[in-house]
Amino acid sequence: MYRILAAIGDDEERALEQARTITGLPGVGPEVSVTLFHDFTDNPEGASVHQVAAVRRAAEHLEDEGVEVGYAESSGAPAEAILETAADIDADLLCLAPRGRSPTGKALFGSVTQQVLLEATRPALVLGAGREKPGSD
Rank of each mutant, 00 (worst) to 15 (best):
D92G: 12
A54M: 03
A124L: 06
R99A: 15
E45N: 02
T41R: 14
F37V: 08
C95P: 07
A91L: 15
A72L: 06
F109Q: 12
G24V: 05
V69R: 07
E63W: 00
A120V: 04
D42C: 01
A58Q: 03
V55G: 02
F40K: 11
A58N: 03
K106I: 15
S102K: 13
T21F: 07
S136M: 02
D64P: 02
Q115W: 00
R56C: 13
F109A: 12
L108H: 04
E68A: 14
Q114G: 11
E45M: 11
A53P: 11
I89F: 09
R56E: 15
G27Y: 07
D88S: 15
D88A: 15
G76S: 13
R20T: 04
A47I: 02
A124C: 06
Y71I: 05
A59I: 10
D11P: 04
T35E: 12
V55Q: 01
K106D: 09
E73G: 01
A86W: 03
L125S: 00
Y71N: 02
I89Q: 08
V52W: 04
E80C: 09
L117Q: 05
D11L: 06
L5V: 06
G70Q: 11
A129L: 00
A87I: 07
V69G: 04
S33F: 00
R101Y: 09
I8C: 02
P44R: 14
D137T: 05
Q51I: 02
H61R: 09
D92V: 07
M1L: 15
A79K: 04
T121D: 14
A59N: 01
L62R: 05
G70K: 12
A81Y: 01
N43P: 11
A58Y: 01
G105E: 14
G130M: 08
D88K: 13
A47Y: 12
I22C: 06
S102F: 10
G128I: 03
A120Q: 04
A58G: 05
E17G: 06
P103M: 10
V34E: 08
A91Q: 11
E119P: 01
G130Y: 01
P26F: 02
E80D: 14
G24Q: 07
P44N: 10
M1H: 13
A6V: 09
I82G: 10
L108M: 12
L94F: 10
A79S: 12
E31K: 03
